[in-house]
């Protein structure tokens, strides 16, 4: 693997987090403007469902990447190990951030 490859991983997790955040917030806005379910429906609407699936998909992806990086530690030259470990931690934290920020999807109604 090249060195710049690890630079990509260093920012990869949080870039994915940002992307997910844009999809989450933008998607909510667009879905609410297209077909807004009534408030009485509470949090069990199709919009929450879509956002929940999106959140879980990103969490799984980020956890997978974190694990992948973690197991790459041994195979990389020693001067790069620090970036590998940092990348793994950052993927893990991004997964946590996705899950934590996405949590209210199961609690709050979407468009009010």
């Amino acid at each position: 693997m090249t060195r710049s490859h690890w630079m990509v991983h260093l920012v990869g997790g949080l870039t994915l987090w940002c992307l997910w955040f844009v999809l989450l917030y933008g998607g909510l806005g667009i879905m609410c403007s297209v077909a807004s379910p009534p408030l009485a429906a509470g949090q069990w609407t199709w919009i929450n469902g879509v956002l929940l699936i999106l959140t879980l998909a990103f969490t799984v992806l980020l956890v997978t990447l974190a694990r992948w990086c973690w197991y790459r530690q041994e195979t990389e030259p020693s001067e790069l190990q620090v970036y590998v470990r940092l990348s793994s931690a950052l993927y893990g934290m991004s997964a946590f951030a996705v899950l934590a920020v996405g949590l209210p999807v199961g609690v709050l109604p979407p468009c009010a």
Partner: peptide, 12 residues
């Protein structure tokens, strides 16, 4: 906090 906000919504 989240349940508090939940209760403040203009529920029918």
């Amino acid at each position: 906090g989240i349940p508090a906000g939940h209760r403040m919504l203009p529920w029918p």
